[in-house]
Amino acid sequence: MKDIIWITSASIKNNLRSRITVIVVLATLLICAVGLAATFSIVLIKPEMKALSPDQSRLEMSLSLILSVTSLLGLGINLNAFAFQILTREKAKGIIQSLLATPLKEKDIWLGKSLAIFLPGLIVGEMLTLTALVSLNYIFFVPRIGFLINPWIILSNFVAIPLMYLSLSLLVYLIGLIGKPATSNVIAIIFLSGIITVIINLVIRSILDATSWTYFLVNVGIAAIIGIITLLLLPRLEKERIVLSS
């Protein structure tokens, strides 16, 4: 466990010191999140708030959708931006090979490095989601109907979606480690755009209730499926495969 913590902390330290990358990622993230939240608010929340008696369940649904997209973006952009770039650089610079030549275990290196990509994204993504939750409430809801909150909204957006991205980070890093980092980047991009499109469609078409326990379970289920795929691929995490793919 100590090894994983050291690998994670050293990697985060090294990654975050690349100021230009961090600034570009944060700026992209902020623009995307604020832009999307504003667009969704205008399209979904504002018309509902104009009604004489706004439908609270519809408002909760819109709020949950906005929070989900913000959370997915926060975690996803970080994963897309960092995983590919960092893994490619670390493989090319011999960092991974050098770590493999120490007494560290392959699994510890994989876990430590995956967490180094996931944790900064988790913090940034969840800060943005929390900011969206508070600001949307104070801009739209508090003046008329009070603070809108629902336990499933909180659990889905602050637990299930991060869990899904933890599984995805582990899978993406594993694939990048034993194969080409570019492949893992494609998977991350397809997943991010795919999952956002599917969620928006299912929620807007009222197929999936984004304020219910089903929504929470769907997200946890996706996390579990990704986790199972990762476990199935785990036996391929061998030094030879990693070294020869570098």
């Binding site: 050293a10 990654n15 690349s18 011999g94 090979q97």
Partner: peptide, 13 residues
């Protein structure tokens, strides 16, 4: 102990 090529050093540390 080993020193490989490339060195495997963390550039930002």
């Amino acid at each position: 102990g080993f020193a490989l090529d490339p060195t495997g050093l963390y550039d930002n540390m």
